[in-house]
Amino acid sequence: MSPSRRFLVVDDERQIRRAVAHVLEPLDGKVSEAASGREALTIAAAEQPALVVLDLGLPDMDGTEVCRELRRWSEAPILVLTARHDDEATVAALDAGADDYVTKPFSTPALQARVRALLRRAGRPNAGEPERTAIEAGALRIDLAARTVTRGGERVHLTPTEYDLLATLATHAGRVMTHTQLFSAVWKGRVFGDAQGHLRVHVAHLRRKLEDDPVRPRHLQTELGVGYRFVVD
């Protein structure tokens, strides 16, 4: 890893900034800290960090607005720190461009896992690489070119909507997808009376067809109050 890589930690509490920096420092990068949204945007513009860890409760501006501003000119992964049970703020930040979230108080292993996953995804080369045509997760194989799914080598019949939902989640593996993001990608903005209930039914159908234990899913995981995440490992 390049020692010139930079990380940015944004939180108005110095103790939390130091705790996050302690996780980032072993990753061969320099950690900068900001205590406000405006300071964060100034530092980010100057240093172009490889990762931003952002608290949503800032003193001068909403963390969601910081996400939105960063996304106007930066593709760096954004990991937001959210208060437990504040699902509305979490969803708003993800819809504004954040890549993932950790609830406070957080454990060091949980934060490390999220950071490493984001850096792995951000570090995957794109230019000049052949387009991915299949995704494998355990016994599942999703053929993106043929729009087919097999489980243990056996073909699984999915409806077009079920396939589109699975493919959307799988091509963003490891990343939480909000209800709004999934509806935009799969249903193209069509409106339903109980949108989340409609989505929940389709996810339940997928779990029955694809998971060994639909009650304790391995791949199609729920992020309560936020959305869903496809897990490969």
Rank of each mutant, 00 (worst) to 15 (best):
residue 229 R to N: 12
residue 114 R to Y: 04
residue 25 E to S: 10
residue 60 D to R: 03
residue 118 L to I: 06
residue 45 A to R: 14
residue 208 R to C: 12
residue 204 A to G: 13
residue 67 C to G: 10
residue 120 R to S: 06
residue 59 P to K: 01
residue 27 L to N: 04
residue 150 T to G: 11
residue 44 A to Y: 06
residue 223 E to F: 11
residue 6 R to L: 06
residue 230 F to I: 05
residue 167 A to D: 13
residue 16 I to D: 05
residue 6 R to S: 12
residue 130 P to E: 05
residue 7 F to R: 07
residue 151 R to H: 09
residue 78 I to Y: 08
residue 55 D to V: 11
residue 78 I to V: 15
residue 137 A to E: 14
residue 116 R to M: 07
residue 233 D to W: 02
residue 114 R to M: 04
residue 41 L to S: 09
residue 50 A to Q: 11
residue 39 E to L: 02
residue 103 T to N: 13
residue 168 T to M: 14
residue 96 A to D: 08
residue 7 F to I: 15
residue 104 K to P: 00
residue 116 R to C: 04
residue 213 D to N: 10
residue 19 A to T: 14
residue 177 M to P: 10
residue 172 H to R: 14
residue 2 S to N: 15
residue 95 D to E: 15
residue 112 Q to Y: 02
residue 214 P to K: 00
residue 9 V to R: 02
residue 130 P to L: 06
residue 136 E to W: 00
residue 11 D to E: 12
residue 131 E to K: 04
residue 87 D to T: 00
residue 33 E to K: 03
residue 92 A to G: 03
residue 78 I to R: 01
residue 87 D to Y: 02
residue 156 V to P: 03
residue 64 T to W: 03
residue 120 R to K: 07
residue 121 R to I: 00
residue 171 T to F: 10
residue 147 R to L: 08
residue 53 V to P: 11
residue 10 V to K: 03
residue 137 A to R: 02
residue 1 M to V: 13
residue 6 R to P: 06
residue 55 D to M: 06
residue 126 N to F: 03
residue 155 R to A: 15
residue 171 T to L: 11
residue 3 P to A: 01
residue 156 V to I: 13
residue 42 T to Q: 13
residue 40 A to M: 06
residue 50 A to Y: 03
residue 96 A to K: 01
residue 217 P to S: 01
residue 16 I to S: 06
residue 168 T to N: 15
residue 182 L to T: 02
residue 50 A to E: 08
residue 113 A to F: 07
residue 65 E to A: 07
residue 59 P to Q: 08
residue 34 A to Q: 08
residue 34 A to T: 14
residue 229 R to D: 11
residue 53 V to L: 04
residue 47 E to G: 03
residue 3 P to H: 01
residue 57 G to T: 12
residue 178 T to C: 13
residue 102 V to E: 05
residue 37 G to H: 07
residue 154 E to R: 09
residue 1 M to T: 13
residue 10 V to Q: 05
residue 197 G to K: 02
residue 230 F to K: 10
residue 67 C to W: 09
residue 192 F to G: 09
residue 51 L to R: 09
residue 79 L to E: 10
residue 153 G to A: 03
residue 42 T to I: 08
residue 9 V to A: 07
residue 56 L to K: 09
residue 68 R to D: 12
residue 106 F to D: 06
residue 57 G to P: 08
residue 141 R to H: 03
residue 108 T to Y: 04
residue 60 D to H: 02
residue 22 H to M: 13
residue 128 G to L: 05
residue 141 R to Q: 09
residue 11 D to F: 08
residue 146 A to W: 04
residue 99 D to L: 05
residue 50 A to R: 06
residue 33 E to T: 15
residue 124 R to D: 13
residue 147 R to P: 10
residue 169 L to N: 10
residue 144 L to V: 02
residue 41 L to E: 12
residue 12 D to M: 01
residue 163 Y to F: 14
residue 107 S to I: 01
residue 13 E to P: 01
residue 170 A to M: 02
residue 120 R to Y: 06
residue 63 G to N: 08
residue 153 G to P: 04
residue 114 R to F: 01
residue 108 T to N: 01
residue 161 T to M: 07
residue 167 A to M: 07
residue 136 E to V: 00
residue 45 A to W: 15
residue 134 A to F: 12
residue 157 H to R: 11
residue 89 A to E: 14
residue 77 P to E: 09
residue 157 H to D: 15
residue 169 L to Q: 04
residue 172 H to S: 14
residue 133 T to S: 15
residue 212 D to S: 14
residue 93 A to C: 12
residue 207 R to K: 05
residue 153 G to W: 00
residue 111 L to F: 02
residue 166 L to W: 06
residue 177 M to Q: 14
